[in-house]
Design a protein around this nucleic acid. Structure first.
Lengths: 117, 117
DNA sequence: CGGGATCCCGATAGATACTG
DNA sequence: CAGTATCTATCGGGATCCCG
């Protein structure tokens, strides 16, 4: 991988690039969770439990990888406060914020067609 | 799975339902390909080559599974003409058509942010 | 022509244990 | 608290052959 993977998908259709970018079970929901501002690792982790099946917690390895991938695509930014105990938070970049309306479109459609009574 | 999986995802967030619905590499692009009307199996197959890496053709088993899944979710409808040689085509249902604008939002965003010069 | 059946493989996610 | 290391189970996708 070179240093700016944020501009991958060139030449192909935008949908393919989108698919790769949000691949994985949690990326879209993480982005949505960050739409109101920065959140800490543990907050994101807890937030992902609501809305799922509620049974199992997400494995730290998985969440970590999702966050790294999102950061690499330039959608979120990691901020390490370097304190002890450690504090790290994640926030949307401008590019990430520009993606929020798309998620909103998805959410609205899903709400209308996918949620039973 | 029971017989009406088209209304799954109740209770959870719409994004999860969306993710399950369009999981796989081709589903969104198939839907997009059908936005202008019905297409035959082979046409869809060929259409998926453009925009990809162009190297390999999609395995019939994979395409078949994607189409079945989309039909099961109620997004497309399969029409078998029962002739010989066989002719089958697929078209969007009203629900599938309602999803097109969402794909368009994805496409537009991807075009603006993901495609390099 | 439009698939189904079978085998294989890489990527991904879950569980568990450990650490700066 | 915010991760990393390891291991394993599962899944989605590709290749190939075959059939109505």
């Amino acid at each position: 991988m070179d240093k700016n993977d944020s501009k991958r998908g060139r030449g192909g259709c935008p949908v393919l690039a989108f698919q790769r970018m949000v691949s994985g079970k949690y990326k879209i929901r993480i982005l949505w969770d960050l739409k109101d501002g920065a959140r800490r690792y543990g907050e994101i982790r807890s937030g992902l439990l609501r809305g799922g099946d509620g049974s199992a917690a997400i494995a730290p390895r998985v969440l970590s990888r999702e966050l790294k991938a999102l950061a690499q695509f330039g959608l979120i930014q990691r901020k390490d406060y370097g304190t002890v105990p450690p504090k790290v938070d994640y926030r949307l970049t401008p590019m990430g914020k520009s993606f929020v309306p798309v998620i909103d479109a998805i959410r609205k459609w899903g709400h209308r067609h996918l949620t039973a009574a």
